[in-house]
Amino acid sequence: MEKRDFESKNRYAISLVIATVVFLLIFAISYSISYFELQRVSNLQVGVGYEIFEDKLGHSFFNEQICNGSSFSKVSQDLSFQGRIVDDLERRLGKQNENVLLRKQFYSLIEIEHFEFVREFNQKCREDLNTILFFYSNNVSEIEDSEEAGRILGSVSSRNENLIIYSFDIDLESELVNKLEKKYNVTASPTAVINEKTKIKLPANIQEIEKHLQ
């Protein structure tokens, strides 16, 4: 058989160029979406932070009633959503990504602010909202235990409506988180501090956690 000619060798070169351009373009678009999402989350965090400060100031400085306001539940819901967004950002951009760490620092700040708000809310309004301060680590040696403990706490949360969980990365460069660790004498991860009284290292049992809830 005679050697068969190619229909057009140029077509291969053109196809290669087009495929490469499209390939790179898609990556550029996906990273743009990630960037815009990060910006959006940043704005959202600022908004939630502002709302918490506003509510707290309204109560402490202007003596506004916090018990019958609806802002508490909204802020709590926003905080929970933000936690999940930070979680997604970690998955998407990596746990060591600079932007993600920055968002986590700010998120930790809002969590502490919210935690203080809840303490006051419980006192002034005679509510019995439970709180768990969950200290975890993304270090290779501890991440598996931390993720398992996170899953268990997630289940506890879904079973108890009056429970708020605040998660803190103990490796985060945040002075406030470090102070919080010292305050509750947290030395290892994962650790759960329930209602500021009970400390459980390596939380592994739902019932064990629930028996300390009010």
């Binding site: 898609i26 996906s30 990273y31 979406i33 999940r84 997604d88 998407r92």
Partner: peptide
């Protein structure tokens, strides 16, 4: 709203999903 946002972000920020759409 939370659900939609999470799904949109999780999916459309992944290049593979954009390639699948293409």
């Amino acid at each position: 709203f939370y659900f939609i946002e999470r799904v949109l972000f999780l999916f459309f920020s992944k290049p593979v999903v954009l390639f699948i759409i293409l």
